[in-house]
Structure formats: C-alpha cells, structure tokens
Simulated assay, not measured.
Amino acid sequence: MIRATRILRRDMLSGGEIIDRVVLDHGDRHRRRVAMRGIGGLGFLLDLPEPAVLEDGDALVLEDGRLVWVEAAAERLLEIRAPNDRALKRLIWHIGNRHIPAEIGADAVWIADDHVLAAMVRGLGGTATQVERPFQPEGGAYAGGHDHAHPHPHAAG
C-alpha cells in the first residue's frame, strides 16, 4: 500500500498532481498513522513521523510525489452568539471551563452539537443555533506548532 509520509500545507501548495481527495471531520484530521481511502477510491496509509492536524486545503504527499487533497467535512455544530462582546466573552469562559474543543470567531463560537451546552448558553443569555460547517477548533495552550494542533489528552472530541 502506498504511504503518505508528509503534509504539504495549503500556503505551500504550488502545483503538483492532485490525484484524489479525502473529506475528514475534526476528529479524523488529528492523525499520525491510519489507513485512508480517497473519494476517488485511492487507498493509502497515512504514515507521518508524529501526530499532526490536517487542515482544510492541505495536501498529503504520497511516496511517489503525487498529492491527496484534504477537505474538512461539514459537521453538526452549535453556533453560539451573544448580544454583545462582553456577553460572548463570558460564554467563551463557560465553554472553556468544560474543556471542549471550540472554534472562536470575531462574533461567534462554534462547538460540537450538545443539547446540554445549548441549554447552558441560552440560560446565560446567548443563542445556540445548530449549523453544518467544517470545524476548526483552537488547538489549546499546549498544542504547539500551528494554530489548530491536536487537543491535549483529556479534551473531548
């Protein structure tokens, strides 16, 4: 089985033969070694030297130099909003206190769909709307390397 042994980050892509693509959710983009199958049917072994986060738009480099495009799958999430900036910061604090992956935007936060957390957000004056979109949560203080690294071991996700 052909192996993918490194990641070519989306900002470094400048050509190359993209022969297939994989569509992966947040959890499946945190990998080191796993058998994968592209949308077009290509089977390959992801075999990286250390665990890494595959970002939307990255490419996996196969041993023969060909590329497999990485696409973030749409996931069922809660989009959390608040009436003002201070209220949103307060909601972010409560979400962070539960150690769950969260993607923080300028005026919204996205987390995995969870009815208990949705009720908490609404109880604190925010809105929690179900949406489907790719999930790019923060990596956390100990993630290292780049913006969206793997969560530390006790994080849910």
Rank of each mutant, 00 (worst) to 15 (best):
A141H: 02
I7H: 00
V23D: 00
W69L: 08
G139Q: 01
I104Q: 14
R76L: 12
V109F: 07
H99K: 15
H94K: 14
L124M: 12
G140C: 01
L42P: 02
A72I: 06
G139W: 01
P151N: 07
R98T: 14
I100S: 10
L77Q: 06
R33N: 02
H148Y: 05
R98A: 15
H26Q: 06
L88M: 08
E17A: 07
V70G: 02
D25F: 00
D113G: 04
A149E: 14
L67W: 00
R33S: 10
E75I: 05
G16N: 04
A108N: 12
I7F: 00
I2N: 01
G40A: 11
L46D: 02
A73E: 11
I2E: 02
I100A: 13
D85C: 06
G96Y: 12
L60M: 05
D20S: 01
D114W: 09
S14T: 09
A156I: 13
D47R: 11
P151H: 09
D114N: 15
V109M: 04
R98D: 15
D58I: 03
R86K: 13
A156E: 14
L78I: 09
I7V: 05
I111P: 07
G145K: 07
A52H: 08
I111Y: 11
I95C: 10
P49W: 03
P134W: 00
H150A: 14
K89C: 13
G27F: 02
G57E: 07
G96R: 15
G41R: 04
R122E: 15
H99L: 15
V70K: 02
P83S: 10
V131W: 01
H115P: 15
I39T: 13
L60F: 09
H148K: 05
E79D: 10
R33A: 09
I7L: 02
H99C: 15
D114R: 10
A87E: 13
R31F: 03
P51S: 07
G144M: 04
A141G: 04
D47F: 10
